[in-house]
C-alpha cells in the first residue's frame, strides 16, 4: 500500500479548474518529483494533498481518505507542507519558527532530542535563534523552512520549488540534506521542482504534469532517458 495515493483528483479556484483528475502514488521511503511547466498545476497538487485548495476525487494517506480533511488535520496526520514562498513566520524569531514546527507534537523530550539531531544539518540556526526570521536570506529561510518541517517529524514531506531563487551551491546543499534524510531515516518526500536536473538526481520516481493532467510518469531513470522530457525539462 502506498503512503499517499491520489485518484482522479480535481481542484478548482472559483471557476478555474486547475487539476483535471490526476492520479499518482508515493510509496513509503521514496522521493517522488513532480515536474511541469508554469501553471501546470504542481503547486495545486500539493495544496490538494494538504487541503489548502478545494478538491474532489480520492486522496488516501496511509490508506485512509483525507479528501474531506482540513490543512490542520493533514498536519496532525504527519503531512508537512513547505509551501511556495516557504511559509516563514517572518515576524517571529528563528527559534519560534522551529517551535511552530513542533506544534503538532506532544512529547517535549522527543522534540528536544529531534531538534538536536536536526540542527546537526543546520549548525548556523543555533547562533541565529533570536533573529527575526523575515530578515534571513532567501537560502537561510529555505533551510529554516526545511528544519521547521522536519521538527514535526513528518510521515510525508511536501516541498514546493525549494530551489526557487537559490544559488546553485545552496540548491545542491539543500537536496543533499533531503537525500541524506531519505536514506538514513526513510523520510518520504513529494517535491515540486522547476530544476528537473537536480530533482531527477535525487528522486526515485517522477511525474510530469501538463495543464492539470499527468502526462508522463516513471522511475527517475526512465524519465531522464525519455526523449520529450529531456527536451522540455532537462534542456539537452
Amino acid at each position: 500500500m502506498a503512503l499517499l495515493e491520489l485518484e482522479g483528483v480535481e481542484a478548482r479556484y472559483g471557476q478555474v479548474r486547475a487539476l483535471h483528475g490526476i492520479s499518482l502514488a508515493v510509496e513509503e521511503g521514496q522521493v517522488v518529483a513532480l515536474l511541469g511547466a508554469n501553471g501546470a498545476g504542481k503547486t495545486t497538487t500539493l495544496r490538494a494533498v494538504s487541503g489548502t485548495v478545494r478538491r474532489t476525487g480520492e486522496i488516501r494517506f496511509e490508506g485512509r481518505s483525507i479528501v474531506r480533511g482540513s490543512p490542520e488535520g493533514a498536519a496532525r496526520l504527519g503531512i508537512a507542507h513547505v509551501p511556495e514562498g516557504r511559509g516563514t513566520f517572518a515576524e517571529l524569531s528563528v527559534w519560534d519558527n522551529l517551535r511552530m514546527g513542533a506544534f503538532v507534537r506532544r512529547n517535549r523530550r522527543a522534540v528536544s532530542a529531534d531538534l538536536e539531531r536536526i540542527l546537526v544539518h543546520f549548525p548556523w540556526i543555533e547562533e541565529r535563534r533570536g533573529q527575526q526570521a523575515g530578515t534571513l536570506s532567501g537560502g537561510e529561510q529555505q533551510m529554516l523552512a526545511l528544519a521547521r518541517a522536519l521538527v514535526a517529524r513528518p510521515r510525508l514531506l511536501l516541498l514546493d520549488e525549494p530551489s526557487l531563487g537559490l544559488a546553485p551551491l545552496v540548491v545542491r546543499e539543500f537536496f543533499g540534506i533531503v537525500r541524506m534524510l531519505n536514506q538514513e531515516e526513510g523520510l518520504t518526500v513529494l517535491v515540486v521542482e522547476q530544476n528537473a536536473n537536480i530533482a531527477l538526481t535525487v528522486a526515485d520516481r517522477a511525474y510530469v504534469l501538463e495543464v492539470g493532467e499527468i502526462a508522463v510518469s516513471g522511475s527517475a531513470e526512465e524519465l531522464r532517458r525519455n526523449e520529450s522530457v529531456r527536451r522540455s525539462y532537462l534542456g539537452y
Partner: peptide
C-alpha cells in the same frame, strides 16, 4: 495560512 499547515 502557515499556522494551519503547522496544525494550528
Amino acid at each position: 495560512e502557515s499556522s494551519r499547515l503547522a496544525g494550528v
